[in-house]
Amino acid sequence: MTSTPLVADGDRPREGGADRAVVDVAVGVLIRPDGRFLVTSRPEGKVYAGYWEFPGGKLEAGETVEQALRRELHEELGIAIGAAEPWKVELVDYPHALVRLNFCKVFDWTGELQMREAQSFAWQGLPLDVGPVLPGTVPVLGWLAAERGFEGATFSVA
């Protein structure tokens, strides 16, 4: 994890001041055998509604990242995942919260995708065909690009 957080919308004031607690979030990077990965839109009524991201959600008290990811992907998408491989951690300073994103790669799941929060989904390659992208998603696109030999590729929020 980088020691300096990624600052999203730095021109906007931060809620809660300088001593905000870190919110841990489990994030699933679901990758099909053809290399395409799943992104979902944030539902209406949530911060950054309409922005695209990798699915997941907050850890509840006592949960591990993998337990939270299993629960969240079942609640949001109606799927059961196999192994969740811990991958990267990124700290993101959003105006509404300081968030530690715990990214896991997932290659195995069962069930048909059901958008239980009325969000949209898309299987994507690089570059994405959807947007805007949530700021915390941008580093992941760079990591995926580097793994796939697209060194120097850049991605933006809008």
Rank of each mutant, 00 (worst) to 15 (best):
V47Q: 11
R71G: 08
K46M: 15
G78E: 09
L91Y: 05
P5C: 09
G45A: 08
V29D: 02
L134V: 11
G78K: 04
Q114E: 15
L101I: 10
A18C: 00
E15D: 14
P33M: 04
G50E: 05
V25A: 14
V47P: 14
A145K: 10
K88Y: 09
P13M: 02
L30G: 12
R116E: 03
A122F: 05
L59H: 12
A68I: 09
G111K: 01
E90G: 08
L30W: 12
R20W: 14
A145W: 09
S3K: 10
A97H: 04
R100F: 14
D34P: 07
L30E: 06
Q124S: 08
V7N: 03
F103I: 02
W52G: 02
I81Q: 03
D24T: 11
L69K: 06
V99P: 08
R100M: 15
G57F: 14
V140L: 13
R36D: 06
P139F: 10
A26Y: 14
A118M: 02
D93K: 06
F103S: 02
L113Q: 01
K88S: 06
A122V: 01
G149K: 01
P132Q: 02
G62T: 12
L91M: 14
R100I: 11
L128R: 00
R36F: 00
A153L: 02
P33H: 04
D24V: 11
S120N: 11
V22H: 00
W109G: 07
V133Q: 04
P127N: 01
G136W: 13
G45I: 05
P5G: 09
E76W: 01
P55C: 11
D93V: 03
K58H: 14
P132H: 05
P86N: 09
V47S: 12
E151T: 02
E63W: 12
V7D: 03
D19T: 06
L30Q: 06
V27N: 03
V130Q: 03
D93L: 14
Y51W: 10
G57M: 13
E85P: 00
E53H: 10
K58Y: 13
W109H: 08
L126A: 08
G82W: 07
A158D: 13
E53G: 00
K105Q: 12
F54L: 15
A49D: 09
V23Q: 13
R32L: 03
A18P: 09
E76I: 15
H74K: 11
F155D: 02
G16L: 07
E63P: 11
A61H: 15
V138T: 09
E147C: 00
K88I: 11
V138N: 08
S41Q: 01
P86I: 06
Q119A: 13
G17K: 08
L73S: 02
D34C: 08
P13S: 05
D93A: 15
V89G: 08
R148Y: 02
A146Y: 01
G111C: 06
L113P: 00
A83Q: 10
A80Y: 04
E15M: 13
W52S: 04
V47E: 14
L91Q: 07
L126R: 02
R70N: 01
E85H: 13
R71E: 02
D129T: 14
R70T: 04
I31R: 05
G136H: 10
W87D: 04
Q67W: 03
P5T: 06
A8L: 13
G142A: 05
L69T: 07
A8K: 11
P95N: 05
D11R: 07
V92S: 11
D19C: 00
E85Q: 10
L98C: 09
Q119E: 10
